[in-house]
Amino acid sequence: MADAVLRVRDLHAGYGDFRVLQGVSMEVAAGEVVALLGANGVGKTTLNRALSGLLRPSQGAITFCGRPIAGIDHAAIVRAGLVHVPEGRRIFPNLSVRDNLLLGCYVRGGATRAQSLARVLESFPRLAARLRQAAGSLSGGEQQMLAIGRGLMARPVLLILDEPSLGLSPKLVEEMFALILRLRAEGLSILLVEQNVVQSLAVAARAYVMEHGRIVMQGAADVLAGDARLRAAYLGL
């Protein structure tokens, strides 16, 4: 893949002596939605933390837009356009919705801020109605929208969405996937980590399956969706 936005080669990372990632290699192309599947505890979140600079990898290479970023400062990674919307949202509960969004473009400064804010609020009209409210007082679904909206404020090239549909009602899950389709149509590259296998494969072009800190399967989403092994392991079919 010549035009890969993100390229990960033989990545190892962990916490102290506990090695979680044991040689992960993967790619995301420009404008591509890639699903990262796997059970709890296989290292998906650890991979995301290593990609976004929250965790320093012990070995391996990460290239983002042609630049090596493994182990560099998390702020520089955000500035380069790799934005991670984490599991658990991690919004600022004590700040207003507006302040949460404005901090989304902390590394970009004020020049494009008003424009970014208008664009994000257009995508999330429910946030627009609650701009002055404390973010901690929002519902779970609204908090998830805010977390994504805050991520979009940084004008990302690649957005990592970690379990965006977790804990949402079926209707909101549907809205979430509709949003991912919209972002895909706008040309954003997305790495989507999900428990919701069927819907993830429906919006993704390709997918990786992780087990025990390694990629064990990869391929086109529609092929994987029909794969007997995957269906048995994750869909109980």
Partner: peptide
């Protein structure tokens, strides 16, 4: 000022928007 308040409650979330 916002960044200081953000770090007070959610340091990891703050890191994800590029605050040190």
């Amino acid at each position: 000022g916002r960044a200081i308040r953000a770090v007070a409650r959610e340091p990891e979330g703050a890191m994800l928007v590029g605050i040190r």
